[in-house]
Design a protein around this nucleic acid. Structure first.
Length: 245
DNA sequence: ATGGTGGTGAAACCA
């Protein structure tokens, strides 16, 4: 059960914040008690079977908001944002996109455009924030094995790069790339591919972005590969960013 | 050139 992987990881690493995506359960069945017993508070925006996001934090969150706050937009549960002691954390599960040209693909591109609009007011007000989650885009040739093969497919398509570039142009830094360059740093490995982790057949699609001031206070950003080696793992693994006070 | 694995939930859909 992946729940135990998360509990064990939390107990060992003790982060101030853990952002989860694809929790696939409603709020009332989220295993809140288990996390609370370890000293974490749970803010959950759950959905049965699909999607669903959560923020687990050691300290209280205020002004928790969910979704795009737009009545016209379909209510997939993919966004949870909150303020933690003056810092905003925005956790997203970006749509996968399924196949290029499909309805889900169109939805992914529209979703990314909508998300740029969602962030813009915060940027204009000078709010410092972290945006992180399953972004479902490998933005450069170094971010997926065999870029040439995948270029133009879902997760590695110029239309996605363009949408993501517009979001980054709001003033966001990819924290992992402040500390690591080159290929081979992945956060997701397809279950279809045997021994994908050891063969380095993966994708870097889970990202942590920060506004300039926060990015300059980031002292480390790394991928923890070990959980992907466990029995019954997630196909993704954890990405960690550390900030000085 | 299609299938390969895995989760949810009990067939089909999603990744």
């Amino acid at each position: 059960m992946r729940q135990q992987i998360v509990l064990d990881w939390l107990e060992f690493h003790q982060p101030d914040v853990l952002a989860l995506q694809e929790i696939k359960c409603e709020d009332d069945v989220f295993p809140r008690a288990e996390f609370e017993a370890m000293g974490y508070r749970c803010s959950v925006h759950g959905q049965k079977s699909y999607n669903g996001v959560a923020l687990l934090t050691k300290r209280p969150l205020v002004r928790v908001t969910t979704g795009f706050r737009d009545a016209a937009w379909p209510e997939d549960r993919r966004i949870i944002a909150a303020e933690m002691e003056g810092l905003w954390v925005i956790n997203t599960y970006v749509p996968n996109g399924s196949k290029v040209g499909s309805d889900k693909w169109t939805y992914k591109l529209s979703w990314l455009e909508k998300f740029a609009d969602y962030l813009r007011p915060a940027v204009e007000r000078g709010i410092q924030f972290v945006w992180l989650g399953d972004i479902n885009i490998a933005p450069t040739p170094d971010d997926v094995f065999d870029s040439a093969r995948h270029l133009g497919g879902v997760g590695h398509h110029p239309d996605e790069f363009e949408r993501l570039d517009k979001i980054k142009a709001l003033g966001l830094t990819d924290l992992f790339r402040q500390f690591n360059e080159g290929p081979g740093h992945y956060t997701y490995w397809d279950f279809f591919i045997k021994n994908a982790l050891d063969r380095k057949l993966g994708w870097r699609i889970d990202h942590i972005y920060a506004t300039a001031e926060l990015a300059s206070r980031c002292t480390a950003c790394e991928i923890d590969y070990e959980p992907r080696r466990l029995e019954k793992p997630s196909d993704h693994t954890f990405v960690m960013a550390t900030f000085e006070d």
